[in-house]
């Protein structure tokens, strides 16, 4: 879906700074808690790991919920969204408990009746076998479809409608676009597609190559 998470090429984020050498894994203790909580929350919410559904929760956060408390803040907000959609938690449960933790005395909402999605993955991880042969071969020119699906997708906005060349064929994998919505794994072939920067960004751009892994249904042949 189009939104805050699809950042490639978007303006207004300012300059980079030289990396810090001594950065701890978790700068503050809550970040480690948030990291582990988000991992475990997706199992609680879905009854099993579904990274695509987790990423879809993150990309539906509004701008403030996505950005204001950084990477791990967005993981906590994404965990809350997964848990409330599966009715493990009531929508106001976290805020009510947080208020009580800081000394207020507020009534907490009742525990809802859980409504987990009907979800069972067919195997660990995301790699799967596909019976059909890959539709595209290495070296073949392909175009990323110019489409803007309303649900989850891993087709970045900035490559849509642009033409590249298949650099590698990667192992077939679960299609995020359906798996994120618990609509089946629908495994597809995956291609590393190589784009020329000037085809994507225009003739004035820095000259370089750009690759992205694109699922077969994201691609079309060039007529």
């Amino acid at each position: 879906m189009d939104g805050i998470a699809d950042m490639g090429g978007t303006p207004g984020w300012g300059p980079m700074h030289p990396p810090r050498r001594d950065e701890p894994v978790f700068e503050e203790p809550w970040q480690g808690r948030a990291f582990a909580l988000a991992i475990l929350s997706s199992r609680v919410a879905f009854g099993g790991v579904n990274l695509d559904a987790f990423r879809h929760a993150l990309e539906r956060l509004d701008r403030a919920a996505y950005l204001d408390d950084g990477y791990f803040g967005r993981w906590i907000n994404g965990a809350e969204l997964m848990l409330t959609e599966s009715a493990i938690l009531a929508p106001s449960a976290i805020d009510a408990r947080a208020r009580n933790l800081r000394g207020e005395d507020v009534e907490e909402p009742p525990i809802p009746e859980p409504a987990r999605p009907d979800y069972m993955r067919t195997a660990e991880g995301s790699l799967r076998t596909v019976d059909s042969a890959p539709a595209f071969t290495v070296g073949k020119p392909v175009r990323a479809k110019d489409m803007s699906p309303p649900g989850h997708t891993r087709l970045p906005g900035y490559v849509r409608g642009h033409t590249g060349v298949v650099e590698r064929i990667q192992p077939a994998a679960v299609l995020p676009d359906t798996n994120a919505h618990f609509q089946g794994e629908n495994p597809q072939h995956v291609y590393t597609v190589r784009f020329d920067s000037r085809e994507v960004w225009g003739s004035d751009s820095e000259p370089f190559a750009l690759t992205a892994e694109l699922y077969e249904s994201y691609l079309e042949t060039i007529s």
Partner: peptide, 20 residues
């Protein structure tokens, strides 16, 4: 697709993490 509202801005993320 729905977009969720953000958390209560007066509550710190550390406190909300502890609550969860």
């Amino acid at each position: 697709m729905t977009t969720t509202g953000g958390p209560d801005e007066t509550l710190s993320v550390a406190l909300r993490t502890e609550a969860l």
